[in-house]
Design a protein around this nucleic acid. Sequence first.
DNA 1: TCCCGGGCCTGACATTTGTCATGCCCGGGA
DNA 2: TCCCGGGCATGACAAATGTCAGGCCCGGGA
Lengths: 202, 202
Amino acid sequence: MTIRLLLADDQALVRGALSALLGLESDLEVVAEVGAGDLVLPAVLEHRPDVALLDVEMPGLDGIAAAAEVRRAAPDTRVLIVTTFGRPGYLRRALHAGAAGFVVKDTPAAQLADAVRRVHAGLRVVDPALATDSLVAGESPLTPRETDVLRAARDGASVAAVAKRLFLSEGTVRNHLSAAIGKTGAANRAEAVITAEGNGWL
Amino acid sequence: MTIRLLLADDQALVRGALSALLGLESDLEVVAEVGAGDLVLPAVLEHRPDVALLDVEMPGLDGIAAAAEVRRAAPDTRVLIVTTFGRPGYLRRALHAGAAGFVVKDTPAAQLADAVRRVHAGLRVVDPALATDSLVAGESPLTPRETDVLRAARDGASVAAVAKRLFLSEGTVRNHLSAAIGKTGAANRAEAVITAEGNGWL
DNA sequence: TCCCGGGCCTGACATTTGTCATGCCCGGGA
DNA sequence: TCCCGGGCATGACAAATGTCAGGCCCGGGA
């Protein structure tokens, strides 16, 4: 009785390599591979895998949003998030979206197959170190609007540009940014962006 | 006659997966794996692989610097850079450091083994699209000092902080930043950092 | 030899950014 | 019902940022 898998990662080489790695296990079988978040659900519906391994950073739709889709439309398929960045907010959002497991890409290769088996068996798989980080970091302190503004300012856009893009007054934008800077403990906009990103709040 | 390989990538899972992928080929054999740039040279000297696959983003020493070390101390080992980011400056610097090939992580998995064989056969392997990008983007227009200052300002540090770290006057720092902003066609510091990073100039 | 250009540095000046106090509107508890 | 917190806005002030003109040093032609 083999476990049927779907792989989603935007880097073809990594996708293929993971496929090779998991294919070495006799009880695992990769039945589908996709390279973008919005292709996950169609592939799941077509192939009905037991477990879907999703990267977070993907074009189209991020892995967490894709996990939520899968959870809704194909609840029998369990989701294991496999990501580069162990950001506390990612873990929180992933679990909230119904993911059954969360693994960082610098865990030893030997553990991946085990994680897949555990998830398939109905267990939850979470990196313990990351779980405590997530508790310490807590939920995002930013209000939705502050998050929007900070996200819009991520690429170095000026206050005026952000204001125009979000149809806000410049003063309001400055206010939201100021609040975000305060809440993140940063000294300026750039630092605020960095810590917010690092915590997975954007 | 098998080709002996060394793998260097900071993400253990990717390293293991690549190892599995390449291990499927009967003429390839992975003889060493390391997870940091400064471990590359010792491992090369110990195992004398035919080809070293190096990631660019690694702790300790970046893959390009490691390539230069290998080139100097073990010229028989050919270097193939395998990286996430196809930044023009990376390619240029990699070739300059004596790398024999440059592959981006979103090339199809099937092509990797071929790239390894070609490099081993003494050929140069370069993604053609990337090569033209590299030509278009040209060399970094930033002077060494401008590069230093921009790099120091990358994390959102203030002018005062950068000045102190680099033992410069604040005015000088502002000036270098202004020059970098002008040369990159950016509107401010943050944008300058983004385009410079995107081109591999930092 | 003199001149020129580039890299590096500096201080003055205008603009942008961040902070603060304040006010208005709205929806959801107590 | 009242109150509170979030979103939105304004205006004023201080601090940081970006621009500019200019000076110093060095190496490479004319």
